[in-house]
């Protein structure tokens, strides 16, 4: 009897499911932690099931900063309009993954309605920032009145590499809402995903990978904020920290570590409802937090 013959005609063999190995997104590639470590995250949709999520080490943080620094020149030099196109493409890719993102949020503990609402909000946020990409410059720039034969202009420029601590909840909308204004401004970023639901961030990374966003512009790490963030706060290549919902003691430590390289430290703790407030959370003021204003003096002609 040939191998496999017993299956033909008989009842169908039970299929073994193909489960995903969750990986972080660094430099445009999906990677495990260099340390080989994992944390187990509960899967709320299966009874008592857990899933393995990479636990980033400080060296993963260093690698991510290297990738972000490498991508900065290319990303910030792109035309603003092109950055907007790419962000809109990200929205398209997120739209195609709506079901997967919602299922991931449900595994993270949300009910179906809340998960769907959060995914839709996150996609809409990408569209909103895609629109802002070539418009915020005009809002922040100015022609300054000076008493002398000079023109002076002030224009916004990207800061550089920004390290973002995403809020614990909402895991997806908080992540998207935090990183979109940063990259819209031409910065590149290293994002530490929510510890409460890191899985969804990695699904989001799969949308980033197919969105024409150059590798290294967004680098997603999962792990323990208190372990990785202090090293990134002291990293001389990092220009700014964006801390969401980080507890006061850790935030203080980070701010102290950031002092040696005079980083911009932006910290705030928004309530969940505030993340869903489209009007407030898509304000260009969110972009303004991650630009440096450059003033140029130019002599008036004879």
């Amino acid at each position: 009897m040939a191998l496999g013959d017993q299956d033909s005609g008989g009842e169908a063999r039970a299929r073994v499911g193909v489960r995903k190995a969750y990986k972080m997104f660094v430099g445009g590639a999906f990677v495990r932690s260099e340390s080989g470590r994992y944390t187990q995250v509960r899967d709320h949709s299966g009874a008592g099931a857990v899933e393995n999520i990479p636990r980033a080490s400080r060296k993963d943080g260093r690698d991510a900063v290297l990738a972000a620094a490498g991508a900065l020149g290319g990303w910030s030099a792109r035309a603003a309009y092109n950055r907007g196109q790419i962000l809109y493409r990200l929205a398209e890719m997120l739209e195609a993954r709506r079901a997967e993102l919602a299922a991931s949020l449900e595994r993270g503990g949300l009910d179906a309605g809340a998960a769907e609402r959060e995914v839709v909000s996150a996609i809409d946020r990408a569209v909103a920032y895609a629109g802002w990409a070539d418009k915020y410059q005009s809002l922040f720039s100015s022609l300054n009145p000076v008493s002398g034969p000079h023109f002076t202009f002030t224009v916004p420029e990207p800061m550089g590499v920004v390290v973002i601590a995403a809020p614990p909840r909402p895991a997806l909308l908080g992540l998207a809402g935090a990183l979109l204004p940063v990259i819209t401004a031409g910065n590149t970023c290293v994002v530490l995903a929510s510890e409460a639901d890191p899985r969804t961030a990695l699904v989001f990374g799969e949308a980033l990978a197919t969105s024409d966003l150059p590798g290294g512009v967004v680098n997603l790490l999962t792990g323990q904020l208190a372990e990785v963030l202090p090293h990134l706060a002291a990293h001389m290549e990092v220009a700014a920290l964006d801390l969401h919902g980080v507890d006061a003691a850790l935030a203080k430590r980070l701010e102290e570590a950031a002092a040696a390289s005079v980083k911009r430290v932006r910290a705030r703790s928004l309530g969940e409802a505030e993340w869903f407030d489209d009007g407030a959370a898509t304000s260009p003021r969110w972009i303004e937090r991650f630009v440096e204003m450059k003033t140029i003096w130019h002599p008036v002609g004879p």
Partner: peptide, 10 residues
Amino acid sequence: RTGAYQGGDY
């Protein structure tokens, strides 16, 4: 020496 990762600008 410092314990902090360095940046190319320095």
